[in-house]
């Protein structure tokens, strides 16, 4: 208990130091106060937006996009990666294209996608889905391919029927790398979503920041930075928690 608390305290120390440094820099007037806003002003902006519901509205819009886009992208990635791993034909056919496409940064697709889909909801959902698809597909491919031959042999020996083989042997064996892929896909999807909203959107956390920048409300911009960072951190931690709970059979 105490060691847990002290560990959290340790992790928070640099954050507190950064805040103090920031406060000192703005108090010393190193930059114009409109550019380097004091932390206290950011907190005030955050609280004000929280109270008038603006923050919650933007946040729920962003999270809904994330949920839909990630859900679609991850599901497609799981199916595609598994098929690629199980079928030599699928690998020969789609492997090279997949390996080439996944090297392209998702943001490089944006100009094309804006032209094709406009800047409405489906554009953002497609971008988020693409961002989630590649890491999840890669993890599913590696996960299923990485199942050791000995697992297959034991199943063959006991003539395990197909359904229990898939559900009780193949799936658990591939789960650890797939969960890691899902975690990477989720945080990457979130980053890309914020970027999209900064570029082109009528709502969402990113749009809130972009609007504030145009109005020179740097306190609101920084509040957005804080919120998007916090959400990303919580998403990552959440999946890690799920990983730890599902993989309890692993040696500690």
């Amino acid at each position: 208990m105490t060691s847990n608390l002290s560990r959290i305290g340790f992790g928070l120390a640099p954050l507190v130091a950064l805040l103090l440094l920031w406060q000192a820099a703005s108090a010393a007037g190193l930059f114009p106060p409109q550019v380097l806003v004091a932390p206290a002003d950011v907190v005030a902006a955050l609280l004000a937006m929280w109270r008038n519901g603006e923050l919650v509205a933007h946040l729920s819009i962003s999270l809904t996009r994330l949920l839909i886009g990630f859900g679609l992208g991850a599901a497609a990635g799981l199916a595609f990666g598994t098929a690629l791993a199980l079928s030599r034909l699928a690998e020969a056919l789609f492997g090279p294209l997949f390996q080439a496409l996944r090297q392209v940064p998702v943001l490089a697709f944006l100009p094309m996608l804006v032209l094709l889909l406009g800047i409405e909801e489906r554009f953002k959902i497609v971008v988020v889905a693409i961002a989630a698809f590649f890491p999840v597909a890669l993890a599913a491919f590696d996960g299923v391919r990485g199942v050791p031959r000995s697992h297959f042999e034991v199943a063959k020996l006991y003539r395990t029927p197909l359904l229990p083989f898939l559900g009780r042997i193949l799936l658990p064996a591939a789960t650890p790398p797939v969960l890691t892929g899902l975690r990477i896909g989720l945080t990457r999807a979130w980053l890309v979503l914020i970027a999209c909203e900064l570029l082109a959107a009528g709502s969402g956390i990113g749009q809130m920041m972009e609007m504030a920048r145009q109005l020179f409300r740097i306190d609101v911009v920084l509040a957005g930075v804080f919120v998007s960072g916090l959400i990303g951190f919580l998403l990552d931690r959440g999946v890690k928690l799920i990983e730890r709970r599902t993989l309890r059979w692993k040696a500690a």
């Binding site: 000995s150 697992h151 042999e153 034991v154 009780r168 042997i169 658990p172 064996a173 059979w249 692993k250």
Partner: peptide
């Protein structure tokens, strides 16, 4: 087998 080959998640 020489190794027990029990599934670690069961």
């Amino acid at each position: 087998f020489q190794d027990h080959r029990l599934f670690p998640w069961m």
